[in-house]
Design a protein around this nucleic acid. Structure first.
Lengths: 349, 349
DNA sequence: GTGAAAGCGCTAACAT
DNA sequence: ATGTTAGCGCTTTCAC
């Protein structure tokens, strides 16, 4: 059973291909095709279950109805969740998702952009590594809809949605200070991405404003988690004066908690903990870890809305939307001052 | 700057399109095109950065160099990790991934298969919901490479890779019995998928073999996690005789641990715990949770290898590969008999 | 050894 | 109002 083509439909209906095409593309009215013919075509098409070949259509129109999604790694729970939410919305609008992980590799990302362009994806959703400014700029200049998220590329006139990294880190640090902690470390993955720079800046400005000296420990990414845990462990044992730590992202938090367990440190008595991102590991840790939660649904929602807007024929052509969403500090127990805790009832938190 | 076509290349080189095409497709030798011409073409193509339009190529050849990946939900960490590993291998071979989440919805999955077929993906990787046997069979009959994983569809002659669910559940249950537990519950999401049926069967047969009565609690999926946690909580409080529980999957385990925390149950003193799947939440829980770990890398590796094999021109045409991988029981502390624990030193586990 | 030309399935400009 | 036809960019048969 060979797949039907538009020619088959036209033949069997004794009309021309263009007539069928117009009907199928909702241009019947515009082309003043009789109601009667329209419904005859529609009925037949439905009957035989014909649907146009998207590849042929794509070749002709240059449109693919595919959205290219590029994230650091699809295995990262944050990106995986975003991907699912984006997929759901896109699917309902008839768009499919082609995804690729950048692994934060600039060259790979450049190649990926090429791949996507060759396949003429209709729009791009990207959490970019640094260094692809030129390529993304070219995309935008060429009129392609592009939405960046999680981090942005400064000086690029492009839609993006991110969170208020600096104030979030600032407030969390400040909160730790208010709890009475003084030797607060910031442990994070080394990165020059905008979101990480923002978090670091927020931490630093809170510390300096309080007249405290900062302690930053950067973890180099290593495929073997054990070695990353070991470096945190080493840092923690060599800096026993530390009474609190802010983790810059979930991966850092995850390594950190494992190191803390290995060192048998009591949280928050020996070391108070707050981490960026929220996740089950923080909810289930004992004690539950106070976390700076990103509004995942809102991020995904804004990203896909922005893209869909630009994709629509009458799409808005306004200047780039720069959306900054707020995080929520989920107060649990890992940030509580041991002193205050004693004063308060045991039910506190 | 318009994109170059093969015609442009041919014109500028003063040769015909077919010559260029042959060179590009490695058929120069076969067509006895002079070495000299070949290198002239190759050099020029590289110089101007030309690469063939995959859409046009796809229209002509029916091949897309795209693999369709359908999982229950890309946001599920298990599937997200598999997706990443599959992507890496596929990417190196020049294949891209189009993904879609089935949400375990049979009708959606049927539609998805149609979508993928229309886009002429070259191969399918599917963790199928029940009820799509017919569609998948049609795919195979049509000669499409298909690999199923995580669950299989009985009576289908298709490649699949799964784990030894029944023995895994059997052994874990048995181990709990050996630790001295008698009232062991099996808490899982209600499902008629093969992997879940296998786990249930393994648990049941271990219990009956020991002359113990089984206690199965099925959680109905609900988008609001709170309500799922509440049902587990209710079940646990209404069955205080329970001294151990085996969770059928990570989602069940995650809900379960939260319920356990709310009820303030001590693990394993009040309730011993073992869960299918392994994850950071189990490593970081206090005490660390004994888990039945799936060999994620091996699963992804076998899946993509199987597909790539069938995709290769001289690909093997053997009968369906039915691959069953072993799980690893990660012994931590949540399964330990409180009695034995007292006898042993505190360092046990 | 190389080139001309057909055709994959579709859309859309142009006729009528 | 509807039909004819020229491509979109590529592969591949067939002729030279």
């Amino acid at each position: 059973m060979k797949k039907l083509s538009i020619a088959d439909i036209a033949n069997q209906l004794n009309v021309s291909k263009s007539t069928v095409s117009f009907v199928l593309n909702g241009r019947a009215e515009e082309k003043r095709i009789s109601k009667e013919l329209v419904s005859r075509v529609e009925k037949f098409v439905k009957e035989v279950g014909y649907s146009p070949n998207p590849i042929a259509r794509g070749l002709r129109t240059g449109k693919s109805h595919i959205i290219g999604l590029m994230v650091e790694s699809i295995s990262d729970p944050f990106f995986a969740q975003i991907a699912k939410l984006i997929e759901d919305r896109a699917y309902k609008k008839g768009y499919r998702i082609l995804y690729c992980s950048t692994d934060n590799n600039t060259q790979k990302t450049r190649d990926l952009i090429d791949v996507f362009r060759e396949r003429s994806v209709d729009g791009y959703i990207i959490s970019p590594p640094v260094g692809v400014e030129k390529e993304i700029d070219a995309l935008i200049k060429a009129g392609m809809p592009v939405v960046l998220f999680d981090r942005n590329l400064k000086e690029l006139e492009v839609d993006y949605v991110e969170i208020d990294n600096e104030p979030s880190a600032f407030n969390a640090t400040k909160m730790l200070v208010d709890q009475g902690f003084k030797d607060i470390a910031f442990i994070t993955f080394s990165s020059s991405q905008s979101q990480m720079l923002g978090r670091l800046a927020g931490y630093r400005s809170a510390m300096s404003q309080e007249g405290l000296t900062d302690n930053v420990h950067e973890i180099d990414y290593n495929p073997d988690e054990e070695v990353m845990i070991a470096t945190v462990q080493k840092y923690l044992s060599e800096n026993k004066q530390l009474d609190a730590v802010l983790f810059g992202a979930i991966q850092a938090g995850s390594c950190g908690l494992k190191a803390i367990n290995i060192l048998n440190l009591k949280v928050p008595q020996d070391l108070a903990v707050v981490s960026f991102d929220d996740h089950d590991i923080f909810k289930l840790f004992a004690p539950p870890v106070t976390a700076i939660a990103q509004p995942i649904e809102a991020i995904a929602d804004r990203v896909i809305s922005l893209l869909l807007d630009r994709l629509e024929p009458g799409g808005k052509d306004a200047g780039p939307a720069k959306i900054i969403l707020e995080t929520e500090l989920k107060l649990r127990k890992s940030h509580l001052s041991p002193v205050k805790k004693t004063i308060r009832s045991k039910k506190s938190g």
